[in-house]
């Protein structure tokens, strides 16, 4: 594990040095740089993007350098500087970037395969209660105990609170006891144990339930689509190349066997990303 960590650091260091060199020789455009957030370990991210990189290298006939940024802010800086050509970033980060610069080139939204093998480019937040519960409307939530997952979770915390505010309920004041359950499946368990009256979670968990379990659960509210990560391009990149790469991405389909990789791409309304800015 230590070795992997060291390797990763060396690679990051080399990447940065390499990027600096690239900026010195701007005319040298033979290679494309693809950067990603460090939301998983580097080997995992390499596996996740391997098929895509291979596809793009063949289609563009250019070598693609895969870079894992040091942190979220570092990636933003690199994009702004034009040090990376294309990047995969989280929806919330994209929303933040667009706030600064709405012209940032959007390539496509990434589609992942969920546990059931369904390929999706977005997910939804659900507010759920027990089927036999008396809670029917948002107004009924007043004083009720509520199970969230984590304060940083879009579907398990941010979106449900946004929905409550939209429906005239102040989640900070009007709810009863609030519990943080961290793991999404735990919301269902706590609900079935009647430990909480209402809970919020990612819809994939609900879909993964057995029919019998689903029958015990009633969905009180469903959020708008929450898109997965997006691919963006650098503003310095040639417009024709941007268009070409977008077309290539939308045409990409992973082989069905490789479930642990990016499944494909889809174009989404940019409003869905901007919306995330309103969540908190």
């Amino acid at each position: 594990m230590e070795e992997t960590g060291l390797n990763m650091k060396i690679k990051q260091f080399l990447s940065i040095v390499f990027l600096l060199c690239l900026s010195l020789f701007a005319n040298e455009k033979q290679k494309l740089i693809l950067a990603v957030n460090p939301y998983k370990t580097t080997p995992e991210l390499q596996v996740l993007h391997a098929e895509l990189i291979d596809y793009l290298e063949k289609a563009l006939k250019r070598e693609i350098v895969f870079v894992v940024s040091k942190d979220y802010n570092n990636l933003i800086t690199l994009i702004e500087q034009g040090s990376v050509d294309i990047a995969s970033i989280s929806p919330k980060l994209f929303a933040t970037l667009r706030l600064k610069d709405p012209t940032i080139p959007y390539l496509a939204s990434i589609k992942f395969a969920d546990a059931q093998g369904n390929v999706r480019s977005s997910y939804r937040s659900l507010i759920v209660t027990l089927s036999d519960s008396s809670i029917r409307t948002f107004a009924d939530l007043k004083g009720k105990s509520f199970g969230f997952t984590d304060v940083d979770s879009t579907s398990g915390y941010l979106y449900p609170r946004f929905m409550m505010r939209q429906n005239g309920i102040d989640p900070a004041k009007e709810l009863g006891k609030i519990y943080m359950l961290k793991k999404h499946p735990k919301v269902i368990q706590a609900l079935l144990e009647k430990s909480i009256d209402v809970g919020a979670l990612y819809d994939g968990i609900y879909r993964g339930l057995s029919n019998a379990e689903q029958k015990k659960i009633r969905i009180l509210a469903t959020s708008e689509e929450i898109p997965h990560d997006v691919m963006i391009a650098s503003k310095q990149m040639d417009e024709a190349l941007v268009t070409k790469i977008r077309a290539l991405l939308l045409a990409f389909h992973s082989t069905p066997s490789s479930s642990s990789s990016i499944a494909g791409f889809e174009e989404k309304s940019l409003f869905l990303y901007d919306r995330l800015r309103d969540l908190e």
Binding site: K186, L192, E193, S195, I196
Partner: peptide, 19 residues
């Protein structure tokens, strides 16, 4: 247990709380 006397968590029963 919180100050209202409501159980936040039981070590022996993960999903049973809030009573």
């Amino acid at each position: 247990i919180d100050l209202d006397g409501t159980i936040i968590n039981r070590g022996e029963s993960e999903f049973r709380f809030a009573d």
